[in-house]
C-alpha cells in the first residue's frame, strides 16, 4: 500500500477540489456506480457484473440473466440529472475500466466530473485552468487546436491530410508492425507517439476532428471539428471535456456508428441506453469535463506511479 503521508496529501487535494466547486455554487451529486447500461465506445471496456452464484456465464447467447455494468464514467447519469433541472453539478466518484494495471492505470480509479450550465467550451477551459493553477501553483495553460498541435510536431494538417499520406507518415516515424485501423486510429497512433510525449507543462488541446466528437457538439463555425478539449500535464493525459451535445437523434447515430466499429473489431455490440437518449433533448446548454483524480494527485505529489496515490492497487485489492 501507499504511505499514510501520501493519503493525507490526497485528502487535502480532495478538500481543495470540493471547496473550489462549493465556492462556485456547484452542487455535489452522487449517481449509481452499477448500471444496466454502459458506453458504446469500442476502446472502453466495461466490467460486467452478475449475481453470484451465476448459473451461466453472461456472455452465453440466449442467457436471460440480467447483467449490470460498473460505470466507466458517471456521464450518462449526470446528464440525466442536468436534464431534470439540477443546475451545475460535480461529482467525485470511482470509475472502472478493463485496463491493464500500469504506472498510469488502475482498473478502478477516481474521477472528478463536472458540468456547467451555459458555459461554452472556452468558459470551461478557463475554469479548468483556474482549478489546475490552484492545485499546481503553476502558470496558465497553453492552448492549441488539434490542428495546430499536429502542425507544430508533425508538420501536417490532420483535418485535410489524405489517409494514404497519414499512414505513410506514421509508418515512417513509428516502429509498429501490422497496424490497421481507420483514419482516427492512425491519428490517435500519431498523437500518442509523436505529440503526447512533447506535451510538458500544462497544455489544452481543443477542436478535435468531428469523427472524434464522442458526446460533444460540432463547432457551428467549422463543422469539421467538435467542441472537445483534452488536458495534458507533463505528458500525462488528465482530462477530457465537451460542449455537450443535446441532440438525441445525432447522439443515437454516433452510438450506432460505435457499434458498427465494434462489429468490425469483433466486439459484441452494446445495447443503447434509452433512458439517457430519452432525455438528451432536454439537456440544457452546458459544458462538462472528466478529470482523473489519481493522476492529478500523482502530479501534485510528484510521484511516478498511480500506486503511490491510491490506498491499494488492483493487485492488493
Amino acid at each position: 500500500m501507499t504511505s499514510i503521508e501520501n493519503l493525507k496529501k490526497r485528502a487535502q487535494l480532495l478538500q481543495k477540489i470540493r471547496a473550489f466547486f462549493i465556492a462556485r455554487d456547484v452542487l455535489e451529486v452522487e449517481t449509481p456506480c452499477l448500471s444496466q447500461h454502459t458506453v458504446t465506445n469500442p476502446y472502453i471496456e466495461s466490467w460486467v457484473v452478475f449475481p453470484s452464484p451465476c448459473p451461466l456465464p453472461p456472455v452465453v447467447e440466449g442467457n436471460s440473466e440480467k447483467i449490470f455494468y460498473l460505470q466507466t464514467s458517471p456521464e450518462y447519469h449526470m446528464k440525466r440529472l442536468l436534464a431534470a433541472g439540477s443546475g451545475s453539478i460535480f461529482q467525485i466518484c470511482h470509475a472502472f475500466r478493463v485496463d491493464a494495471h500500469s504506472e498510469r492505470h488502475n482498473p478502478e480509479f477516481t474521477m472528478l466530473e463536472w458540468y456547467r450550465i451555459n458555459f461554452t467550451l472556452n468558459d470551461l477551459m478557463d475554469e479548468m485552468d483556474e482549478l489546475l493553477q490552484l492545485i499546481f501553483q503553476k502558470q496558465k495553460a497553453t492552448r492549441y487546436t488539434y490542428q495546430a498541435i499536429f502542425k507544430k510536431y508533425c508538420s501536417f494538417d490532420p483535418l485535410s491530410i489524405s489517409f494514404e499520406a497519414l499512414k505513410k507518415f506514421a509508418e515512417k516515424n513509428i516502429n509498429i508492425k501490422n497496424f490497421t485501423g481507420d483514419r482516427d486510429d492512425w491519428l490517435s497512433l500519431t498523437f500518442t507517439h509523436l505529440i503526447e510525449p512533447n506535451l510538458l507543462d500544462t497544455i489544452f488541446i481543443y477542436d478535435f476532428p468531428a469523427s472524434q466528437a464522442a458526446l460533444a457538439r460540432l463547432n457551428p463555425r467549422d463543422p469539421r471539428v467538435a467542441s472537445r478539449f483534452e488536458v495534458y500535464v507533463d505528458a500525462l493525459e488528465l482530462a477530457n471535456g465537451f460542449h455537450e451535445l443535446n441532440n438525441a437523434q445525432e447522439q443515437r447515430q454516433r452510438f450506432i456508428d460505435d457499434n458498427k466499429k465494434r462489429q468490425q473489431l469483433s466486439l459484441a455490440p452494446i445495447e443503447l441506453d434509452e433512458k439517457f437518449l430519452d432525455v438528451l433533448d432536454k439537456l440544457p446548454d452546458c459544458s462538462g469535463v472528466a478529470l482523473g483524480v489519481d493522476r492529478l494527485a500523482m502530479l501534485a505529489l510528484d510521484v511516478k506511479s498511480i500506486d503511490e496515490v491510491i490506498a491499494f492497487s488492483i493487485e492488493r485489492a
Binding site: 465506445n41 476502446y43 472502453i44 485496463d99 491493464a100 500500469s102 504506472e103 498510469r104 492505470h105 509498429i176 485501423g181 482516427d184 486510429d185 490517435s188 497512433l189 498523437f191 500518442t192 507517439h193 503526447e196 472524434q212 464522442a214 483534452e230 493525459e237 477530457n240
Partner: peptide, 14 residues
Amino acid sequence: NIIVKPGKGQAFNR
C-alpha cells in the same frame, strides 16, 4: 514497457 491507453482510443504497449 509503457502502456499507452488514451481515454478514448486504442491501447498500445510502447
